[in-house]
Simulated scan of single mutants.
Amino acid sequence: MTLALDWSDTSSIGYPTLFLGVLIGSIVPVVPTGALVGGAAAIAMTTPHLSLPLVLLLATLGAGIGDVATFAAARLGSTAAVRWLSRGQGAERLASARVRFERRGWQLIVIGRLVPAGRIPVLLAAGAVSYPWRRLLPATLVACVLWAVAYALLGVLSGGIFDSPLVATALAAVLVLLVTVVLNLVAKRRRAKTGVGK
């Protein structure tokens, strides 16, 4: 038995790429993690090389570990997180964030994971207000499962339309991009309506 990757076997490359890509992208948002999950799901639907349940499991694990690492960094370096959260806002912003997390912290964590560019601010805020680990971990698990399923469904949809893995993966990436743009527009409109940050 060897630990070396078999470069001729798509699954031996695909699974580690998916897991590490989602993990890294969940800590440092440089990898389009949604497109990665959608593409892997499209490949799972159109070829025997990847398994959809394993795609979901690895995407959830990568996202969950990345989110916990981000929260831990904010929690352990809470002075920096508090400075970031309250920059130019004063102590009332931190007090307001603390109240919001006490009332509906799990909802904020789930929504933060699903809304583009919402995850890191929410996790930093949770760390800054010392949100309890016992509440964070189940909320993160639920958020990451929902996120993985949502983006995998886009890949399943594209894989169900096209038999070609290349076309299905490209369509999954386009669908992920469209969903991201729509969610960003909805979030901006909501913020403008409610006057968040003012």
Rank of each mutant, 00 (worst) to 15 (best):
S86I: 07
L178C: 13
S86M: 12
W147R: 02
A44F: 14
G105I: 10
L185Q: 10
L108H: 13
V179D: 02
V145Y: 09
L154P: 00
A80F: 15
L3M: 08
L166Y: 15
P138G: 03
S158R: 02
A81D: 01
L23A: 02
G66C: 07
Y15C: 05
W7G: 01
T46A: 02
L146E: 10
A63N: 11
V31M: 13
A125R: 08
S8V: 00
L178Q: 07
L5D: 02
L177Y: 15
G66R: 03
L20A: 10
W84T: 05
L18G: 06
Q107C: 05
W7L: 15
L61K: 00
A173K: 00
L177P: 00
D163M: 06
A4Y: 12
R189K: 09
G39K: 04
A44S: 14
A42P: 00
V186H: 05
Q89H: 14
V129P: 01
L171C: 08
S12N: 06
L50D: 02
P29R: 01
W7C: 03
A4M: 10
L76T: 09
I65P: 00
S11R: 11
V181Q: 05
R75Y: 15
H49N: 08
V37A: 08
S51V: 06
A4N: 06
G155Q: 04
A63K: 04
D6Y: 08
V37C: 05
V37K: 03
P121N: 03
L85H: 09
G39Q: 05
R98V: 03
V68L: 14
L157K: 00
T70W: 04
A125G: 11
S12I: 02
I65R: 01
P29D: 05
G62M: 09
V196H: 13
R104S: 11
